[in-house]
Design a binder for these strands. Structure first.
Length: 260
DNA sequence: ATGACGGTGTGGCACCGA
């Protein structure tokens, strides 16, 4: 059973690429971020024809998240419970999969612009709210996955220039402490459960031929709960879609779970 | 380096992303 995350940076532009990818990577569930469209513009029909149901929390122009799944999603929650948010950044659902009943929390985390800005402060508050809510979700759902675009590098291995980008956005101590607070709830970074290629990233800037020079960041993550850990077989980044024409700046990350 | 590229909504550009 496979589940993936992909920040598509406009589903309107990327739908053909998503359909292509699903045709070659028929995952059980695909979590999308940065739809950049309202619910009424969501391509429900096209995805249904590809074999996927959609739980959608859209927003015009910015943000927007969705969970595509082969089996119906239940218990859908939009945004962080107990945290008031104008922006559509989280959708959670319970899925019945070959690997069992899974709680899936799909997030488009706040970017944060730069330390000491209002947007950075919002990022920190948002992360606090997520942690508090996640504690409850974990208590209710032992087998839980938190995945999406975290907009945080975990350590030096996740960035092409650890020295030059020290304490800049996505690299600050404060962001990493907030990431650690999520880990401390009892979650594991599935990608680091395995040996991985050096300089593995999930995002590359469109500018300066960043992809060709592999100047990227690993900011798209999949965290798994303690109860799910024994079922994790692999976690890989699929960088191939970054070579598409008109690619997203992010690529999919894929988690494989086995049944017990 | 106030830049670069790309998406959106707008309107002759600005804003945002990371």
């Amino acid at each position: 059973m496979k589940i993936a995350t992909w920040n598509v940076n406009s589903l309107a532009v990327r739908l053909p690429q998503v359909l292509d990818w699903l045709a070659t990577h028929p995952v059980d569930a695909l979590c999308l971020q940065e739809l950049k469209l309202s619910d009424d513009k969501f391509p429900l029909k096209e995805l249904k024809e590809a074999g996927y149901q959609s739980a959608v929390f859209g927003q015009k122009t910015y943000n927007g998240v969705a969970i595509l799944s082969k089996t119906p999603a239940r218990g859908i929650v939009k945004n962080i419970q107990g945290f008031s948010d104008e922006q559509s950044r989280v959708i959670a659902a319970t899925l019945d999969t070959p690997a069992g009943e899974l709680r899936v929390i799909n997030g488009y985390f706040v970017n944060g612009q730069a330390p000491a800005t209002e947007k950075f402060a919002y990022k920190m508050k948002w992360l606090d709210g997520l942690r508090d809510w996640l504690r409850e979700e974990l208590a209710a759902h032992p087998k839980l996955i938190l995945l999406g675009d975290f907009n945080i590098t975990v350590d030096d291995r996740d960035t092409y220039d650890p020295q030059g980008l020290r304490e800049t956005i996505h690299h600050t101590t404060e962001e990493r402490q907030h990431f650690q607070a999520l880990i401390d709830l009892g979650l594991s970074d599935a990608f680091r459960m395995f040996e991985q290629p050096e300089k593995s990233y999930s995002w590359w800037d469109y500018r300066e031929m960043a992809f060709r020079r592999n100047r990227g960041l690993r900011i798209d993550h999949i965290l798994v709960s303690e109860a799910l850990k024994p079922q994790v077989r692999s976690c890989v980044i699929d960088k191939l879609p970054r070579k598409n024409e008109r690619p997203s700046d992010h690529v999919p990350v894929v988690l494989e779970l086995v049944s017990l």
